[in-house]
Each structure stands twice: as C-alpha cells, then as structure tokens.
C-alpha cells in the first residue's frame, strides 16, 4: 500500500501533558479517538458536524471541535481535554463559578463550554457580556438559556482582572 492510501496513520502527540503514541484509522475523528481509545469521555459528541461545540477541546492553545478534526491531524500537537484541565487546576476558578452560579444543568455542553470560555478568558481583559455571548455563540446549550453561563464567565473575568491588579 502506498503512503497516500494508508488506512492507518501513526500519530505522536501529548494529551493532557502525557505522551501518546497510537496508530489510528485515517478517518477517525479526534473526539472518537479521545473517547474510544483513550477513555477521555469528558468531551462529548453531539451534532458531529461542527455546530454545537459539545466536543470542544484545546489543541495547541486553540479551542477546536473534536468532531471536525481527524485524529491523524493531531500528530505533533498538544491536546488538553476537560480531564487534564481539571487535574492541573488550570480552570478551577471557572469550574467553581459554573457550580456556584448553576451555569449547567444536564452538563452535556459544559466541558466544551468551559474550554471555549477559557479561550476567551485566556486573552485577558474583561470582556463585555455581549463579547462573552458572541464568543460562546458556537456552543449550544439547551438547558440553561445561557444567562447563568454568561454570568459565571463574566464573574471569572472580573475576578482574574481584579487579581491581576492586586
């Protein structure tokens, strides 16, 4: 079989800070690789065509849809999922704010929502409510009506800005 038509691809990447080497089906999506092969079930598959954001993960500092990316494309990347972001306390304030504000109900959107929100927050500054809404407008939540999510993200932005000043 020629290089072009391989149906399995070798990848080497880091996932949540740990090195991963795997031989993946060429057509396998990143979300399925994470969920099925690595047992990282925190990110969810829902629409599987890039609309709902439930599968959002962090790849090299960007919030990326795991259902639109192939596992084969992850070679050489640094991938973070909700599990790793939790273990490293990287978004602890955001997670606590979500719990305190009840910015989740069923929780199915939440891991993706947190990764998307952190992408905005990591840029620094205190985004307006409209900017937060805009940034999260690719993450569907059927339960909350969004307001609590916006509140939680806003409070973390303010909290981090306040800490920066202090």
């Amino acid at each position: 079989m020629t290089e072009m038509f391989r149906d399995k691809v070798d990848v080497s990447l880091t996932v949540n800070g740990e090195p991963v080497e795997a031989r993946v089906p060429a057509g396998q999506h990143m979300i399925d690789f994470l969920r099925l092969e690595l047992g990282l079930t925190g990110a969810h598959a829902s629409c599987e065509h890039g609309v709902c954001g439930a599968c959002t993960i962090r790849v090299d500092d960007d919030a990326v849809r795991g259902c639109l990316m192939l596992a084969a494309q992850a070679d050489g990347t640094e991938v973070w999922t909700i599990e790793g972001l939790t273990d490293t306390n990287a978004i602890r304030d955001l997670q606590e704010a979500f719990v305190v504000r009840n910015a989740l109900q069923c929780g199915f959107c939440t891991p993706g929502m947190l990764v998307a929100a952190e992408e905005l927050l990591s840029k620094g500054g205190t985004p307006s409510r409209a900017e937060i809404r805009e940034h999260l407008s690719g993450n569907y939540c059927r339960c909350t009506g969004y307001e609590a999510i916006i509140d939680a993200v806003e409070s973390v932005a303010q909290g981090r800005a306040g800490k920066g000043k202090a």
Partner: peptide, 8 residues
C-alpha cells in the same frame, strides 16, 4: 454539579 464541570 462538580462532577459534571470536571467531565466526570
């Protein structure tokens, strides 16, 4: 809620 925000 805590387990859900942790992806658990």
């Amino acid at each position: 809620a805590a387990k859900l925000v942790q992806g658990r």
